[in-house]
Amino acid sequence: MVRSFLGFLPWIVYAVIATGDEWRWGALAGLVIALGLIVVDRRSGKDWDQMVIETSAAIFFVLSAAVSFAGPSSSLIPYGPALVNAWLALTAWGSLAIRKPFTLGIARSMAPEEIWRTPQFYRVNAVITAVWGAAFVVAAVLLAVLLSVAPHATTAVIAVKIVTFVVPMVFTARYPKIAAARFRGQAA
């Protein structure tokens, strides 16, 4: 379980470093960590579908670094946290749109192969990905509004970031067990 959340490390590091004029260095740090995770994962034999978040991070941070160095005083600076969550929402909802929920590859690394192709396995991962997608949308909207009306409300920004990450994380840890118990109950 811990390994599955390592994919969020580039985003977390970016969130810590990218404050005000430090967003360039946050983008570079996020990019380096994302690329490092991808290299380590590929060398360990992981498939690309197990690295959707890391790959998405690499793309985001390439774009973010390019924008941040080309226009260091860009009007996007204050909205970095909202943009991160909007990008992650696009990643989550995009993966659902192509019927490859971003959690599916991660879940395959933790589940027995015989259940991978079951409709229940796909459904559980679609629900988990949708919860993450919804949390990212909520975070993006709340952060965009908060940063536009109260740009120095650091405590509120941190609270939004924490709640919108912890809630889907807890859901991800608990929901597969609930769904499995429900499925066993229906099968009996």
Rank of each mutant, 00 (worst) to 15 (best):
M1H: 12
V2D: 02
L9C: 02
I12V: 15
I12D: 02
V13E: 02
V13N: 03
Y14H: 15
V16P: 00
G30E: 06
G30H: 11
L31G: 09
V32T: 08
V39Y: 01
W48N: 06
W48Y: 10
Q50D: 04
V52S: 11
I53W: 03
E54G: 04
T55N: 01
S56Q: 01
A57T: 05
A58R: 07
I59R: 00
F61I: 03
V62Q: 06
I77T: 14
P81Q: 09
L83N: 06
A86M: 13
A89Q: 05
K100R: 15
K100M: 12
T103S: 15
G105Y: 14
E113P: 00
E113N: 04
I115D: 10
W116K: 09
T118N: 05
T118W: 06
Q120Y: 07
A126I: 03
I128C: 08
I128R: 10
T129V: 10
A130D: 04
W132N: 02
G133L: 06
G133R: 02
A134L: 15
A140P: 04
A140V: 11
L143W: 07
S148G: 01
T154A: 14
I158F: 11
A159C: 05
V160Q: 07
I162E: 02
F165D: 03
V166S: 09
V166C: 05
R174G: 00
Y175G: 09
K177G: 15
K177T: 11
A181F: 01
R182Q: 15
A187P: 00
